[in-house]
Simulated assay, not measured.
Amino acid sequence: MAVARPRGRDEFAGALRGLGDRYWDRHPFHLRLHTGKCEPDEVRSWVANRWYYQRSLSQKNAAIIANCPLPDVRRRWVERIVFQDGRDGGEGGLGDWLALADAVGLDRSAMLDERHVVRGVRFAVDAYVTFCRTHTWWEGVAAALTELFSPGHMAARITAWRRHYGWIDPAGFAYFESRIPVVRADSAYTLDLVLNHCDTRRRQDAALAALAFKCDVLGAMLDAVDYHGGRR
Protein backbone atom coordinates (compact mmCIF):
# COMPACT_ATOMS: atom_id res chain seq x y z
CA MET A 1 0.00 0.00 0.00
CA ALA A 2 1.46 3.34 -1.06
CA VAL A 3 2.14 5.90 1.64
CA ALA A 4 0.39 9.21 0.99
CA ARG A 5 2.76 12.00 0.09
CA PRO A 6 3.29 14.80 2.61
CA ARG A 7 1.29 17.93 1.95
CA GLY A 8 3.26 20.87 0.69
CA ARG A 9 4.01 23.57 3.23
CA ASP A 10 1.33 25.95 1.95
CA GLU A 11 -1.21 23.15 1.59
CA PHE A 12 -0.56 21.95 5.14
CA ALA A 13 -0.78 25.48 6.54
CA GLY A 14 -4.05 25.94 4.69
CA ALA A 15 -5.43 22.69 6.12
CA LEU A 16 -4.56 23.84 9.65
CA ARG A 17 -6.11 27.26 9.13
CA GLY A 18 -9.15 25.58 7.60
CA LEU A 19 -10.00 24.15 11.02
CA GLY A 20 -10.94 27.66 12.07
CA ASP A 21 -14.51 26.72 11.18
CA ARG A 22 -14.46 24.53 14.30
CA TYR A 23 -13.18 27.27 16.63
CA TRP A 24 -15.43 28.33 19.49
CA ASP A 25 -16.06 31.85 18.18
CA ARG A 26 -19.04 30.40 16.27
CA HIS A 27 -20.57 28.70 19.29
CA PRO A 28 -24.10 29.94 20.14
CA PHE A 29 -22.97 30.98 23.62
CA HIS A 30 -20.16 33.16 22.28
CA LEU A 31 -22.50 34.68 19.73
CA ARG A 32 -24.86 35.65 22.54
CA LEU A 33 -21.97 36.84 24.70
CA HIS A 34 -20.68 39.14 21.98
CA THR A 35 -24.09 40.57 21.08
CA GLY A 36 -24.99 41.63 24.59
CA LYS A 37 -27.59 38.93 25.13
CA CYS A 38 -26.04 37.31 28.20
CA GLU A 39 -27.27 38.15 31.67
CA PRO A 40 -24.67 39.22 34.26
CA ASP A 41 -24.72 35.80 35.93
CA GLU A 42 -24.03 34.15 32.59
CA VAL A 43 -21.01 36.38 32.04
CA ARG A 44 -19.81 35.56 35.54
CA SER A 45 -20.32 31.85 34.91
CA TRP A 46 -18.18 32.08 31.76
CA VAL A 47 -15.41 33.91 33.63
CA ALA A 48 -15.49 31.47 36.56
CA ASN A 49 -15.39 28.41 34.32
CA ARG A 50 -12.76 29.81 32.00
CA TRP A 51 -10.58 30.25 35.09
CA TYR A 52 -10.16 26.47 35.27
CA TYR A 53 -8.82 26.51 31.71
CA GLN A 54 -6.53 29.46 32.44
CA ARG A 55 -5.00 27.91 35.51
CA SER A 56 -4.40 24.61 33.65
CA LEU A 57 -2.51 26.16 30.72
CA SER A 58 0.85 26.11 32.45
CA GLN A 59 0.40 22.45 33.32
CA LYS A 60 -0.25 21.53 29.68
CA ASN A 61 2.69 23.69 28.57
CA ALA A 62 4.92 22.00 31.12
CA ALA A 63 3.80 18.65 29.71
CA ILE A 64 4.80 19.72 26.20
CA ILE A 65 8.20 20.81 27.50
CA ALA A 66 8.66 17.54 29.39
CA ASN A 67 8.01 15.57 26.20
CA CYS A 68 10.25 17.71 23.98
CA PRO A 69 13.91 16.69 23.46
CA LEU A 70 14.86 19.96 21.74
CA PRO A 71 16.44 22.61 24.03
CA ASP A 72 15.69 25.51 21.69
CA VAL A 73 11.98 24.63 21.65
CA ARG A 74 11.91 24.14 25.42
CA ARG A 75 13.56 27.51 26.01
CA ARG A 76 11.01 29.28 23.85
CA TRP A 77 8.00 27.35 25.12
CA VAL A 78 8.77 28.02 28.79
CA GLU A 79 8.06 31.69 28.13
CA ARG A 80 4.38 30.76 27.99
CA ILE A 81 4.49 29.51 31.56
CA VAL A 82 6.14 32.71 32.74
CA PHE A 83 3.59 34.82 30.86
CA GLN A 84 0.68 32.94 32.39
CA ASP A 85 1.91 32.42 35.96
CA GLY A 86 4.00 35.59 36.28
CA ARG A 87 7.31 35.71 38.08
CA ASP A 88 5.60 36.45 41.38
CA GLY A 89 2.16 35.71 42.78
CA GLY A 90 -0.65 37.90 41.50
CA GLU A 91 1.08 38.66 38.20
CA GLY A 92 0.81 37.35 34.65
CA GLY A 93 -2.23 36.02 32.89
CA LEU A 94 -3.60 34.43 36.04
CA GLY A 95 -3.40 37.73 37.91
CA ASP A 96 -5.15 39.49 35.04
CA TRP A 97 -7.88 36.84 35.00
CA LEU A 98 -8.49 37.37 38.70
CA ALA A 99 -8.77 41.10 37.95
CA LEU A 100 -11.44 40.20 35.37
CA ALA A 101 -13.26 38.21 38.04
CA ASP A 102 -13.21 41.29 40.25
CA ALA A 103 -14.44 43.42 37.34
CA VAL A 104 -17.52 41.25 36.76
CA GLY A 105 -18.34 41.00 40.47
CA LEU A 106 -17.17 37.48 41.27
CA ASP A 107 -15.94 36.68 44.73
CA ARG A 108 -12.24 35.94 44.39
CA SER A 109 -12.25 33.17 46.99
CA ALA A 110 -15.03 31.45 45.06
CA MET A 111 -12.91 31.67 41.92
CA LEU A 112 -9.89 30.17 43.62
CA ASP A 113 -11.73 27.25 45.20
CA GLU A 114 -13.42 26.60 41.84
CA ARG A 115 -16.87 26.05 43.30
CA HIS A 116 -18.48 27.42 40.12
CA VAL A 117 -16.60 25.14 37.71
CA VAL A 118 -19.11 22.78 36.11
CA ARG A 119 -18.15 19.16 35.56
CA GLY A 120 -18.24 19.37 31.76
CA VAL A 121 -15.63 22.13 31.78
CA ARG A 122 -13.47 20.26 34.27
CA PHE A 123 -13.68 17.09 32.18
CA ALA A 124 -12.82 18.88 28.92
CA VAL A 125 -9.86 20.81 30.34
CA ASP A 126 -8.47 17.75 32.12
CA ALA A 127 -8.71 15.84 28.83
CA TYR A 128 -6.63 18.55 27.14
CA VAL A 129 -3.92 18.41 29.79
CA THR A 130 -3.88 14.61 29.61
CA PHE A 131 -3.62 14.77 25.81
CA CYS A 132 -0.49 16.92 26.06
CA ARG A 133 1.01 14.60 28.67
CA THR A 134 0.40 11.42 26.70
CA HIS A 135 1.04 12.51 23.10
CA THR A 136 4.15 13.70 21.33
CA TRP A 137 5.40 17.21 21.97
CA TRP A 138 4.60 18.27 18.41
CA GLU A 139 1.00 17.08 18.77
CA GLY A 140 0.71 19.20 21.91
CA VAL A 141 2.15 22.14 19.98
CA ALA A 142 -0.28 21.54 17.10
CA ALA A 143 -3.20 21.52 19.54
CA ALA A 144 -2.12 25.00 20.67
CA LEU A 145 -2.68 26.33 17.16
CA THR A 146 -6.15 27.53 18.12
CA GLU A 147 -4.09 30.66 18.79
CA LEU A 148 -4.20 31.20 15.02
CA PHE A 149 -7.86 32.04 15.42
CA SER A 150 -7.93 33.82 18.78
CA PRO A 151 -6.47 37.35 18.37
CA GLY A 152 -9.37 38.69 16.32
CA HIS A 153 -11.84 36.96 18.62
CA MET A 154 -10.32 38.58 21.71
CA ALA A 155 -10.27 42.00 20.06
CA ALA A 156 -13.93 41.60 19.15
CA ARG A 157 -14.68 40.59 22.73
CA ILE A 158 -13.21 43.79 24.14
CA THR A 159 -15.22 45.90 21.69
CA ALA A 160 -18.43 43.97 22.35
CA TRP A 161 -18.10 44.01 26.11
CA ARG A 162 -17.42 47.74 26.19
CA ARG A 163 -20.51 48.30 24.06
CA HIS A 164 -22.94 45.92 25.73
CA TYR A 165 -21.78 45.40 29.31
CA GLY A 166 -21.14 48.81 30.76
CA TRP A 167 -21.38 47.35 34.26
CA ILE A 168 -18.01 45.58 33.80
CA ASP A 169 -15.06 47.54 35.17
CA PRO A 170 -12.78 48.23 32.14
CA ALA A 171 -9.78 47.34 34.30
CA GLY A 172 -10.86 43.75 33.81
CA PHE A 173 -9.92 43.82 30.13
CA ALA A 174 -6.19 43.75 30.91
CA TYR A 175 -5.86 40.03 30.16
CA PHE A 176 -7.18 40.37 26.62
CA GLU A 177 -5.33 43.62 25.94
CA SER A 178 -1.99 42.13 26.98
CA ARG A 179 -2.60 38.74 25.40
CA ILE A 180 -3.50 39.88 21.86
CA PRO A 181 -0.01 41.03 20.74
CA VAL A 182 1.64 38.09 22.48
CA VAL A 183 -0.59 35.50 20.86
CA ARG A 184 -0.03 37.01 17.41
CA ALA A 185 3.71 36.43 17.78
CA ASP A 186 3.24 33.04 19.43
CA SER A 187 0.95 31.77 16.68
CA ALA A 188 3.48 32.58 13.96
CA TYR A 189 6.19 30.70 15.85
CA THR A 190 3.91 27.77 16.65
CA LEU A 191 2.73 27.41 13.07
CA ASP A 192 6.31 27.45 11.81
CA LEU A 193 7.24 24.82 14.39
CA VAL A 194 4.45 22.50 13.27
CA LEU A 195 5.19 23.03 9.58
CA ASN A 196 8.87 22.24 10.12
CA HIS A 197 8.52 19.18 12.35
CA CYS A 198 5.43 17.56 10.85
CA ASP A 199 7.13 16.64 7.61
CA THR A 200 5.45 13.29 6.91
CA ARG A 201 1.83 12.63 6.01
CA ARG A 202 1.39 10.66 9.22
CA ARG A 203 2.64 13.54 11.34
CA GLN A 204 0.60 16.05 9.41
CA ASP A 205 -2.56 14.02 9.88
CA ALA A 206 -1.80 13.69 13.59
CA ALA A 207 -1.25 17.46 13.87
CA LEU A 208 -4.58 18.15 12.17
CA ALA A 209 -6.30 15.69 14.51
CA ALA A 210 -4.67 17.39 17.50
CA LEU A 211 -5.93 20.81 16.47
CA ALA A 212 -9.40 19.42 15.78
CA PHE A 213 -9.37 17.83 19.24
CA LYS A 214 -8.45 21.16 20.85
CA CYS A 215 -11.31 22.88 19.01
CA ASP A 216 -13.61 20.19 20.38
CA VAL A 217 -12.27 20.80 23.91
CA LEU A 218 -13.13 24.48 23.64
CA GLY A 219 -16.54 23.71 22.18
CA ALA A 220 -17.27 21.22 24.95
CA MET A 221 -16.42 23.85 27.55
CA LEU A 222 -18.97 26.22 26.08
CA ASP A 223 -21.55 23.44 25.73
CA ALA A 224 -21.26 22.90 29.48
CA VAL A 225 -21.35 26.60 30.38
CA ASP A 226 -24.30 27.19 28.06
CA TYR A 227 -26.24 24.26 29.49
CA HIS A 228 -25.78 25.39 33.08
CA GLY A 229 -26.36 29.04 32.24
CA GLY A 230 -25.89 31.47 35.09
CA ARG A 231 -26.82 28.95 37.81
CA ARG A 232 -24.19 29.26 40.51
Rank of each mutant, 00 (worst) to 15 (best):
I168L: 10
M221P: 01
C68E: 05
L191F: 06
D186V: 15
E39T: 07
F123L: 10
F213G: 13
I180W: 09
R7Q: 12
R26N: 14
R162V: 00
A48K: 05
H228R: 14
A103G: 08
A209N: 14
S58W: 02
V118D: 04
R184W: 06
D85S: 13
Y52M: 03
W24P: 00
M1T: 08
R76H: 11
G95P: 05
P71H: 06
I64D: 10
L112F: 08
L100G: 00
A48I: 08
G152Y: 03
A212G: 15
A174M: 11
V118Y: 05
A63C: 03
G172A: 10
Q54T: 06
L33V: 05
E39G: 03
F131I: 09
D226R: 09
C198L: 07
P69K: 05
R7N: 04
V194R: 04
G166T: 13
A127H: 15
H228N: 09
V125N: 12
D107P: 01
L16G: 03
D186W: 15
W46I: 04
E177L: 11
W77A: 06
P71F: 10
R80Q: 04
V225T: 14
G219I: 00
E42R: 02
M111V: 10
F123S: 06
L16V: 09
I81H: 05
R122G: 15
D41K: 03
S178A: 13
E147H: 08
C38F: 02
F83S: 04
D223G: 13
W97R: 02
E11K: 11
G229E: 07
A143G: 15
H228Q: 03
A142R: 05
Y53A: 09
R7H: 04
A188K: 08
G152W: 04
L222T: 06
A2S: 10
L31R: 12
A224K: 02
I158D: 08
E39K: 04
L33W: 09
V47L: 02
G8E: 11
G92E: 11
N67Q: 11
Y227Q: 08
M111F: 03
Y53E: 07
R5H: 06
G8Y: 10
Q84D: 04
F173A: 14
G152P: 14
H228T: 09
Y53S: 05
G93E: 01
Q54S: 09
L193P: 00
V3I: 09
R75F: 03
C68S: 12
K214P: 01
P170E: 12
L106W: 05
L222Q: 12
W77T: 01
V125L: 14
E42N: 08
C198N: 00
T130P: 00
E79A: 03
G219V: 02
A143M: 03
T146G: 04
V118H: 14
Y53V: 06
G86E: 06
L211A: 12
F83W: 14
T134R: 12
V182G: 07
E139N: 02
Q204I: 11
D113P: 01
A185P: 02
Q54D: 06
A210W: 02
L195W: 07
D205P: 03
A63P: 04
H164G: 04
A103S: 13
M154D: 14
P69S: 07
N61R: 12
A155L: 03
